[in-house]
């Protein structure tokens, strides 16, 4: 009889990859990249336990709930996963959030006395900001590469996809924008304008400078907040001992594309 193959390392990699698609909805940054995932454990029965923490004890409970819930759903999509538990540590609403997410409750079920609805509107509002920031970063890059406003506004989706972007980080900017654009202009064919407003409409050329100025405000705010959160998380947990146990893993290194995107975004600005 052959001994069972131990593929737990691969499975943990798959879990980390799923967690990497979960973003902090307020910052639009992957929770893995932010350092929010403290540890991932894989049990012998293929149950997965995710432990996460946030930059402060007081981080907004609505966003914390969304992240916990999104992590659970993302990991549960892996076909081999038998069960998922997600545990938030060191937070003023940790107990309620862990119980609610663990039982598959909605936000309003988790906080029956403290909420008036679920988090659809909140998420939608921050998805708009994420769209604006991703679009600004890509427009800014293309403008700095020599595209005039007129050329940018004429650009079709197909043409945007064909632009040769030499740096992986810049290809990542485009991929991130195209991913979120689908939510705001779902019906676009290859000839549709690449850059559209939040309403999915073409951007008017005379307003382009004002349009960019408004987007910049959103981008600067998000980047400042993300940086502050990274700093607070670092000092909050730097004295903590590393997670013990053979089944715990550190986050894998980012793929080359993501690493490059990260350094493009941040190193040059700090």
């Amino acid at each position: 009889m052959k001994p069972p193959v131990d593929n737990s390392a691969e499975k943990l990699q798959e879990v980390w990859a799923r967690l990497a698609v979960v973003c902090d909805p307020e910052l639009d940054e992957p929770v893995t990249d932010m350092g929010f995932i403290e540890a991932v454990h894989l049990d012998p029965d293929d149950s997965v336990r995710v432990h996460f923490r946030l930059p402060t004890f007081w981080c907004a409970p609505n966003f914390a709930f969304l992240m916990a819930n999104d992590m659970r759903e993302a990991v549960a999509r892996l076909p081999w996963v038998a069960g998922v538990s997600v545990t938030l540590a060191d937070h003023c609403y940790a107990e309620q959030i862990n119980r609610g997410v663990g039982q598959g409750h909605s936000f309003s079920q988790t906080f029956p006395d403290e909420s008036s609805a679920d988090l659809h509107d909140l998420r939608a509002r921050f998805r708009q900001k994420a769209f604006q920031r991703r679009q600004e970063l890509l427009l800014r890059h293309l403008r700095d590469s020599g595209y005039t406003p007129q050329a940018l506004l004429r650009l079709s989706l197909a043409e945007l996809g064909e632009i040769a972007l030499d740096e992986p980080g810049n290809r990542h900017l485009r991929a991130r924008y195209l991913e979120i654009r689908k939510e705001f202009a779902p019906d676009g064919g290859p000839d549709a304008p690449a850059f559209v407003t939040l309403q999915g409409q073409p951007i008017e050329a005379p307003d382009f400078a004002d349009y960019m100025t408004a987007l910049r405000r959103v981008r600067v705010n998000a980047e400042f907040n993300a940086n502050l959160c990274r700093g607070l998380l670092r000092v909050r947990y730097e004295a903590e001992p590393p997670t013990q146990g053979a089944d715990a893993t550190d986050p894998p290194r980012l793929s080359p594309d993501l690493s490059a995107a990260h350094s493009d975004h941040y190193s040059s600005k700090t």
Binding site: A60, P61, N62, E114, S115, S116, D118, L119, R125
Partner: peptide, 13 residues
């Protein structure tokens, strides 16, 4: 502004 205004589903900030 702070993080926890009720109802919790709104953006407290």
């Amino acid at each position: 502004k702070g993080p926890t205004i009720l109802p919790l589903n709104r953006d407290a900030f």
